[in-house]
Computed example of a mutant assay.
Amino acid sequence: MNFISRYVLCVGFVLAISAFVTTSGLAQGHGHGGGGGNGRGASGGMGGPPSGVGVDRGLGNASERSSGRSDSGLGTASDRSNGRSNSGLERARISSQNLKRADDDLRDHPGIAKTLHTNANSLRAGYQTALAANPQLTFGNYVAATRLGQNLHSRFPNITRDSILAGLASGRSIGRTLQDLGLSDRQAKEAKKAVEQEIKDAKKMD
């Protein structure tokens, strides 16, 4: 074998070894790269929170807080509504009882309406109207207020049936109301006593 042939063989051998080394290195590089990628992917999947957990928890807490306020608000509104309803029913019950007693008085004592220069139907209607403003008003006080207004208005213009009824509705007595309307303590007592006697006499009429 001459020199040229040996030279060609050596060069070919070197090239073959270089190609083998390069191919092996590339293969190892791809292997490590894939493993690293898989490792990061697995790590990322395991380390992060499960899908939707954070959002669901936030919505759940917000819903619970909102529901608490909503339930409380509805409960309070219901309590208030029931309170108003119960109060209205109680006022209606008291008013109905007082009106029934008035019917009994008018039936048993027709002289009351005559003393007030009216008839039983008109007296009852006026009392029923007054009960709408003050369910606690008794028929006796309504009759007294009516008669006091008739007796005193000409001398004391401030004194009317309605002004006396307003005083009773505010919680004052007939005597106190008459004084507030301009009478002295003695005048109020005398006027009240005179009307009480008139009503007593009226109940004796047939």
Rank of each mutant, 00 (worst) to 15 (best):
S154N: 11
L74A: 09
D105H: 05
S163M: 11
N82M: 07
F156P: 05
K114G: 00
S72Q: 05
N86I: 09
S78M: 01
D105N: 08
Y127L: 01
A102Q: 06
N141G: 01
S154E: 12
L74H: 06
Y142L: 09
T146A: 13
S87D: 11
A102E: 03
N134V: 05
Y142K: 11
N158C: 03
R155K: 11
S87T: 08
R91E: 08
F139C: 12
N119V: 03
L116C: 02
G88D: 09
H153K: 15
K114L: 02
E90S: 08
S78I: 05
G126N: 09
A133C: 01
Q136C: 01
Q97E: 04
N119F: 01
F139S: 10
R84Y: 12
A113E: 04
S96V: 01
Y142W: 13
R101N: 08
N82K: 08
R155S: 14
E90Q: 10
I112A: 01
A145M: 10
L131N: 07
G126Q: 06
Q128E: 12
L137Y: 12
L152E: 14
A133W: 02
T76F: 03
A113Q: 04
A130P: 12
T160V: 02
N151V: 10
Q97V: 05
F156H: 15
P135H: 15
Y142H: 15
T115V: 02
R91N: 09
T146Y: 13
D71C: 00
K114C: 00
T76E: 06
S78H: 04
A144N: 13
L89I: 06
D103I: 01
D103C: 05
T146N: 11
D162K: 14
D79F: 05
S78G: 00
T160K: 06
R84F: 10
N151I: 08
L137I: 11
N119H: 04
G73Q: 04
Q150A: 15
S95M: 05
N86G: 04
D71H: 07
D71Q: 07
R155Y: 02
L116R: 05
G149V: 09
R93D: 10
H153Q: 15
A120P: 01
N86K: 10
D162P: 04
N158E: 13
R91I: 00
S154W: 07
A133L: 09
S163T: 15
N134T: 14
R161P: 03
A132S: 13
Y127N: 06
G75Q: 13
Y127S: 06
N82P: 00
P157W: 07
L131I: 04
H117D: 12
T115N: 01
G83A: 09
H153D: 11
K100G: 04
L89S: 07
V143K: 14
Q150I: 09
L131M: 05
G149A: 06
P135D: 08
N82G: 04
L131V: 02
E90G: 04
N86S: 07
D162Q: 14
D79Q: 09
G75T: 13
L106T: 02
R107C: 04
Q150W: 12
N141R: 06
A120E: 13
R80I: 02
A133S: 15
V143F: 11
Q128L: 10
R84K: 09
D71A: 11
L116N: 03
N134Y: 13
D104F: 10
A77V: 11
L152I: 14
S78D: 04
R91W: 02
